[in-house]
């Protein structure tokens, strides 16, 4: 029960803090001209997970109770969770 209470509080306040962080980040946006995209176009700035890390995502999906989100493998397709 104690464990549930602490996580219940986290769940209640998480959306509130998330909205604050998101609004601060998005409000700081500025338009970027095509000739200013040298850093953005770097391959390491790619938002997805590197192909070489594919098996790590697969292992995490199997060995942990959660899946999906932020480029990780979804459910199904194998004898895993």
């Amino acid at each position: 029960m104690k464990q549930r209470t602490s996580y219940s509080l986290a769940v209640q306040f998480l959306p509130f803090f998330s909205l604050i962080v998101l609004s601060l980040l998005i409000s700081a946006c500025s338009s970027v001209k095509p000739y200013q995209r040298a850093y953005l176009n770097d391959s390491e700035m790619n938002g997805g997970t590197a192909t070489a890390a594919g098996i790590e995502n697969y292992v995490q999906t199997i060995r942990e109770g959660s899946s999906g989100g932020e480029g990780e493998k979804g459910s199904g397709g194998c004898g895993c969770n």
Binding site: L22, L25, I26, A28, C29, S30, V32, Q36, R37, Y39, L40, M45, G47, S67, G68, G69, E70, G71, G74, S75, G76, G77
Partner: peptide, 26 residues
């Protein structure tokens, strides 16, 4: 049977920063 839906919003914040938001449903 397994069904997954994953949505991504990727936004350029400035010349050096990209923000990604990924809600999903399974």
């Amino acid at each position: 049977q397994s069904f997954n839906a994953s949505f991504t919003w990727s936004r350029v914040l400035n010349r050096r920063m990209i923000l990604n938001i990924n809600p999903g449903f399974s």
